[in-house]
Design a protein around this nucleic acid. Structure first.
Length: 490
RNA sequence: GCUCCCAUCGUCUAGAGGCCUAGGACAACACCCUUUCACGGUGUAGACGGGGAUUCGAAUUCCCCUGGGAGUACCA
């Protein structure tokens, strides 16, 4: 077999969507597994919806996910340019070739005429197919229309191509993931390949680009299945080799509709902003439609590539549920080396003055607060009590903990006993253990004892390891907070 | 409307005729651990959409129904 070459061809009309990311991933995996090339092509034929900002977002997101391309707009390659808008001069040649071979014809129909045809079809409850009324225009007729100032579009002649290459109007192909797929080409209708403004339509541009870029396998979403039949016919009419196709199920929102903004984040960059790790995201998305042969679900992209077989990919749609993604993200956060975690958390700590802590204290703070994090951004609300002189005590905590007699006794006792403690973790651990034991003798549960201390120092009833918190804050600050929580006898 | 695709626990899935009284993961619940929250550990509950057919035997094959998704542009 010739070289495996796959591509991802996003259109920059928005930020990189997670669905596109998954398609990119599966292409990448397929390329890696088969020692092939992974190509990035930007399909920006529709100038109005395209923006440089989106192009940058696509590049950045793909890179962040670790899906590096071998050829693309920025890195170049032997079959460039890799941006469709820079290839506009090459499409007309091939359109002309199709015209010459009789597989395409000029169409002078106006939008109004076309609209009327469609209207009629819906009225008669018939499926709309183009009437082909421009198929057999004479040169004289065309000249006349041209003289009127009408610019023709070019349509592909389905029936001609079908008859030239197939016995039946039923066209079949063997899909890499779904198996044999078929379609009656008689139902397709002669579609436009070159718009009257001289730019190619999607279905034409893809074929020309895939052909010229020597793409061997086209792996994409199943929303392209019906396009595939059109594209196969174009490949054949051009005398080009038809690539193999593989169509992936769609990613759906929990309500089974298309994943869109109203369901939350859809772009990879939005997930990153929310505090998701790209490693977790890509791992999660890989599991949508694919499962590891050894049952181990936490895997790097390279590990997945070793185990990847395109025909093992599920052909059904899958629902994007946050539960598992969240679990995976917290898992990846736990796995992150401490130094890296410290850096990645900083963007979410801008409201605090990190200079209040030494590097060692910051390290310890991260160590003891990382456990319950689901998102990196969760750190923001997990650490306010490490900063500032005083703490904000939640009203409920004030009423239910600090205002109780038990708590007041605990705190008074704590102040008294801790006067001569050294506030390093080791000492604190020992002393606190003994401290709890004293109160236990009095019938006060260890956790009640600690609640009092925790409430006074952090203003909360839950949080990180109390010993470490006291050590980080230091004796002076800890005691000041506790003293101010003690009600003076009136 | 027409065409195409899909169908196993709530979700992602394993399963390619007997290994399935259907396995795993997430979520849920219970218990254990414990200075709180969590982590972790151990358990519990939970599915082959329905109906036919083939077969000694079907989650696995075929047909119908139902449900869901997609396509139907001079968008991509």
């Amino acid at each position: 077999m010739s070289e495996v070459r796959v591509r991802i061809a996003p259109s920059p009309s928005g930020n990189l969507h997670v669905g596109t990311a998954r398609t990119a991933l599966f292409n990448y995996l397929f390329a890696k597994k088969n020692n092939g090339k992974f190509v990035l092509r930007i399909e920006d034929t529709d100038a109005e919806r395209t923006s440089q900002e989106y192009i940058d977002n696509i590049f950045d997101s793909l890179k962040a996910l670790g899906l590096n391309w071998d050829e693309g707009p920025d890195v170049g390659g032997p079959y460039g340019p890799y941006t469709q808008s820079q290839r506009f001069d090459i499409y007309p040649k091939y359109a002309q070739m199709l015209l010459d071979k009789g597989f395409a014809y000029e169409c002078f129909c106006t939008p109004e005429e076309l609209e009327a045809e469609k209207e009629l079809a819906t009225q008669n409850k018939k499926p709309y197919v183009y009437s082909k009324k421009c198929e057999n225009l004479t040169e004289a007729e065309k000249e006349k229309l041209r003289a009127e100032g009408r610019k023709p579009a070019i349509r592909f002649n389905i029936a001609k191509a079908q008859k030239a290459f197939h016995d039946s109007t039923i066209l079949k192909f063997d899909d890499l993931v779904k198996g044999e797929l078929h379609m009656d080409t008689a139902l397709l209708g002669d579609f436009v390949i070159m718009k009257s403004n001289g730019t190619p339509t999607y279905n034409f541009a893809v074929v020309i680009d895939d052909m010229l870029m020597k793409i061997s396998h086209v792996i994409r979403g199943e929303d392209h299945i019906s396009n595939t039949f059109k594209q196969i016919l174009i490949f054949e009419a051009l005398g080009a080799e038809v690539p193999r196709f593989g169509h992936l199920g769609m990613i759906l929102a929990p309500d089974r509709s298309k994943l869109s903004k109203r369901h939350g984040a859809t772009a990879v960059s939005e997930f990153v902003e929310k505090g998701y790790l790209t490693d977790a995201l890509i791992n999660f998305v890989a599991l949508l439609g694919w499962s590891p042969s050894d049952g181990k679900e936490i895997k790097t992209v390279d590990e997945i590539a070793q185990d990847f077989r395109i025909n093992d990919v599920s052909s059904s749609n899958s629902i994007f549920e946050y539960d598992k993604l969240n679990w995976m993200n917290s898992h990846y956060i736990k796995m992150l080396p401490i130094e890296e975690l410290k850096e990645r958390l900083k963007p979410y700590l801008t409201k605090y003055n990190l200079n209040e802590l030494t590097d060692a204290q910051y390290t310890r703070m991260v160590e003891i607060t990382r456990e319950p994090l689901t998102l990196l951004s969760d750190i923001t609300d997990a650490v306010p009590y490490f900063f500032g002189e005083d703490v904000e005590v939640e009203p409920k905590v004030q009423a239910e903990i600090l205002d109780t007699e038990v708590a007041q006794n605990v705190l008074k006792e704590f102040v008294k006993q801790s006067k001569d403690w050294s506030f390093d973790e080791e000492t604190l651990h020992e002393k606190l253990e003994a401290f709890r034991a004293q109160f236990k003798e009095l019938g006060i549960k260890p956790k009640v004892t600690m609640w009092a201390v925790r409430a006074a120092v952090t203003g909360r009833t839950c949080g990180a390891d109390m010993t470490a918190i006291l050590a980080i804050l230091g004796k002076e600050k800890s005691l000041r907070r506790i003293e101010s929580a003690i009600k003076q006898p009136v």
